[in-house]
Design a protein around this nucleic acid. Structure first.
Lengths: 240, 240
DNA sequence: ATAGTTTTGACACGACTGTGACACGTGGGG
DNA sequence: CCCCACGTGTCACAGTCGTGTCAAAACTAT
C-alpha cells in the first residue's frame, strides 16, 4: 500500500495574527515537508493566496480587521482560489462559530489549543483527500466490509447503507483515517469532540458502543486497546 | 562502542549556563561521535546556531537573560534554523512548562537530573526520526522474531500478533528500546512503574515471566542477569 | 412540543496487577 | 563433595481498575 508521502512540497499558507502560533504551525508543517508561507492579517492572507496559490490554507478565525470568515468567503468566491482547501483554527469559546465556518466551506477545523501533531495529521488528511482525485472519486474509504463515502457522508457495510449520527460519523472517520494507530480517549475527545483532552467521561465508550452496534459485523473492526484507547487495524492483517 | 552510527559527525549545539553540565553533556555526545559546540547564554546560542547550523540543539530552559523559550522562538521564527531539532532540558519543578516547550516546537525534553546515557539515547532517537523523513506512519522496532509497532500498539512474534497488557507492553518497550544493556530492577520500576527505585517487590519478575510466556519463542530474547536485572540482547555484532 | 441525539451516572463483569508462599537452580562456603 | 543461602521462576488469589452496558436526563433542532 502506498504509504502517506503525498507529493512533497505542497504549498501551505498559515494565517494568524499571533506570531508564535504562526511560528509553531509553520515550523511543524515545514518539518513535515511542506513549503510554508505566512500572513498575519486577512488582507495579507488574500494577497499571499493569490500570489502563491497554496494547496491549503490554515486560517485563524480571529483576525484583526477582516475576520477569518470574510477571508474564507472571498476565497470561495474567487474562481482562481475556490479549490483551495481551508483548515480553520478557532478558539474554544467560538465553538458555535465553527458550524458557520464549515457551512461556508472550510474543509476542517481545529480548536485552540491544539497539538501540532494533530494539525499536521489533519493537513495531511485533507490534502490526501483533495489530492486523491481533485474531486469526489477519491473521497472514499474502504476497510474490509466497510465503506465510507466522505463526500456523501454515507457509510455502507457490505453494500447496505447504515445511518449514523454526526458524532458517530466523525468518530468512525477519525478511527478510519488513522487506522493502524491507537487513538487514545483523550485524543478522540480532542479530535471528535473538540474538548480538552483531560476531561473524564464515559462518552467515548458509549459512542464506540453504538457505532459497533450499528456497524453490525463490521463493528469488530473497532478494537479496544485496554488502557490506551481504540483502533481500527491496519489493512494487512485482519482475518485471523 | 555499539552506537549504530547514523550519519556520523552530526553537529550538536549544547546550551546551558552551568559549565559542568555543558562539559558533561558535550563529553558524552562527543564520545558518541557527534561534533559538539557549546554556548552558555541565549544570545551566544543563537549566534552559534546561525554560524554552525547544528542538526540539533540541547537547550536548557533556565538561562540568564534570554530564556530557553525565547531562544526556541527565535529559532523557530528563523527560516534558516526552523528545521533544527531541539531537545529541551528542564528542572523537575518546571515540569508543566515542558508542555509549553513542546507546543512551541521542541522535539523532546528531559528533566534534570538526567543520565548522560539517557540524553545520548534521546538525541539519537530524535535525529533518526527527523532524518527518516519527518513523521513516518508508524515507528517500529524489530528484534529478531519480535516486532513492536508503537503507533498501533501491536506486538508480533514471527508475524502473528500477541496481546499484551499495558504494563507488559511498557516493560517490553523499555527493554527493547535499550536492548543490549542490562536494565536494573530499580530502573525498570522507575521507568515502567514510575515508582521510587528503592521499593522492594517481586513484581518485576512476575511481569517478566508473563511477558516471556506470552511472547512464546521470542521470550528467550529477554535474558536474566542474575543479581542485576534483565536485558534484551543487542544485535549480534558483539565483538567482545 | 416532539423526536432524535448526546451526555451522564450507576452498575456489573472481566481483565489486569501486586503479593505472598513455595519450588528450583546456581554459586559459595564448610 | 555436600549443604546452605540467596535470587529467581512459578503458582494461585484477591483487590483494583477499566470497559461494556443500560437507562434516564439534558440538549438540539425541527
Amino acid at each position: 500500500m502506498t504509504i502517506i508521502t503525498q507529493a512533497p512540497g505542497e504549498r501551505i499558507l498559515v494565517v494568524d495574527d499571533e506570531a508564535d502560533i504562526v511560528a509553531l504551525v509553520a515550523y511543524h508543517l515545514a518539518k513535515s515537508g511542506y513549503r510554508v508561507s505566512t500572513a498575519s492579517s486577512g488582507s495579507e492572507a488574500l494577497e499571499a493566496a493569490r500570489r502563491d496559490h497554496p494547496s491549503l490554507i490554515v486560517l485563524d478565525l480571529m483576525l484583526p480587521g477582516m475576520s477569518g470568515y470574510e477571508v474564507l468567503e472571498q476565497i470561495r468566491g474567487d474562481d482562481a482560489m475556490k479549490q483551495t482547501a481551508v483548515l480553520m483554527l478557532t478558539a474554544r469559546r467560538e465553538e458555535q462559530d465553527r458550524i458557520q465556518g464549515l457551512s461556508l466551506g472550510a474543509d476542517d477545523y481545529l480548536t485552540k489549543p491544539f497539538s501540532p501533531q494533530e494539525l499536521v495529521l489533519r493537513v495531511g488528511a485533507i490534502l490526501r483527500r483533495v489530492g486523491a482525485g481533485g474531486q469526489s472519486p477519491g473521497e472514499k474509504l474502504d476497510i474490509g466490509p466497510l465503506s465510507i463515502d466522505l463526500a456523501a457522508h454515507v457509510v455502507q457495510v457490505k453494500g447496505s447503507a447504515v445511518e449514523l449520527t454526526p458524532t458517530e460519523f466523525k468518530l468512525l472517520l477519525t478511527l478510519a483515517e488513522r487506522r493502524g494507530r491507537v487513538q487514545a480517549r483523550s485524543h478522540l475527545l480532542q479530535t471528535v469532540w473538540e474538548a480538552a483532552p483531560d476531561i473524564q467521561t464515559r462518552t467515548v465508550d458509549m459512542h464506540v458502543q453504538r457505532l459497533r452496534a450499528k456497524l453490525g459485523e463490521a463493528g469488530d473492526l473497532i478494537e479496544t486497546v485496554r488502557g490506551f484507547g481504540y483502533r481500527i487495524r491496519a489493512p494487512q492483517n485482519r482475518t485471523a
